[in-house]
Design a binder for these strands. Structure first.
Length: 270
DNA sequence: CTAATCACCTGAAGGC
DNA sequence: TGCCTTCAGGTGATTA
């Protein structure tokens, strides 16, 4: 479910709620959700800083790191007091010494908490965050260079640019008038500029709208995002293109449902 | 190196 | 009502 804007929303809310809190216990109700890769105790450490890279949340503790990936259905829910009604699908419960709690709810069980002494192991192959201040047009073009992939698969792979998922790739390509199968190596300078600017625009707009909710995504308070109201092509197969009125098509491409306007996003024959 | 497929899981929705 | 198939904001392993 969550892509960069949803994870960023949760990161900001985590900073508001759990920064500085001291961990009393971490209990895995579903063992595979908690990948403990280091011996140092989590209990007794406090949360010093919270970062995000792509779709990963990085909780900097006093001595170690807790890296969280929500995958498809992961949710972090904060409780300011004692919790009595146990919810469905809670996989990990984190208690703080001040009696507050953070619950990790994850219906499909794909999400993970990684407890590590070093962030490199997990984040090694994650490329620069799509909203990183360091990422300007020159660096974006440098990352595109030498790729022999199509643009959709390239943006979905997190190893070059991280944070975009299926929704925001389709939305960015639509605004950039690029067919998903366009080869990265075929992008003209004006196309790569357009693409970069639209990626930033689409992601920032979604962050302002607290992310997108299709079915499962909720923020820390259980609220839905608002950005789904602004989708131009995602989930709109059969609807008229907002630019030219042609019916939006949905095909399977790069292994994913792919939405695009067959008139605005022309497939290039080389 | 790229691309396709499966695997990991659960639940919702649509067809019959 | 019920059974079966397909699909879902992700990604890692395996196989061509």
């Amino acid at each position: 479910m969550p892509e960069l804007p949803e994870v960023e929303t949760v990161a900001q809310e985590l900073r508001d709620n759990v920064l500085g809190r001291r961990i009393k216990s971490v209990t895995a109700i579903w063992n595979r959700s908690f990948d403990n890769q280091c011996e140092t105790a989590l209990a007794g450490q406090s949360i010093e800083r919270i970062d995000r890279k792509g779709k990963y949340l990085i909780l900097n503790l006093e001595r170690t790191f807790l890296i969280i990936h929500l995958r498809m259905t992961g949710q972090l829910l904060f409780y300011p007091g004692k919790v009595d009604a146990a919810e469905d699908h809670v996989r990990i419960i984190m208690q703080f010494v001040d009696q507050t709690e953070l619950h990790f709810k994850d219906m499909r069980k794909f999400g993970r908490f990684y407890h590590v002494s070093d962030i490199q192991g997990i984040l090694n192959n994650v490329g620069i965050d799509a909203l990183d201040r360091q990422l300007g047009l020159p660096m974006f073009r440098k990352v595109l260079r030498n790729s022999k992939m199509n643009i959709k698969a390239f943006l979905l792979s997190q190893k070059y640019i991280s944070g975009l998922g299926n929704i925001y790739v389709d939305e960015s390509l639509f605004l950039s008038r690029l067919h998903p199968s366009t080869m990265v190596s075929d992008l003209t300078p004006s196309e790569s500029k357009r693409l970069f600017e639209n990626i930033v625009f689409v992601l920032k707009q979604a962050v302002r709208n607290m992310g997108s909710t299709i079915s499962d995504y909720r923020d820390m308070y259980g609220n839905r995002g608002n950005n789904q109201k602004f989708f131009r092509v995602y989930g709109r197969a059969g609807d008229p293109c907002p630019v030219c009125g042609t019916q939006i098509k949905k095909i399977k491409f790069a292994g994913r449902g792919t939405h695009f306007c067959p008139s605005c996003q022309i497939k290039q024959e080389t």
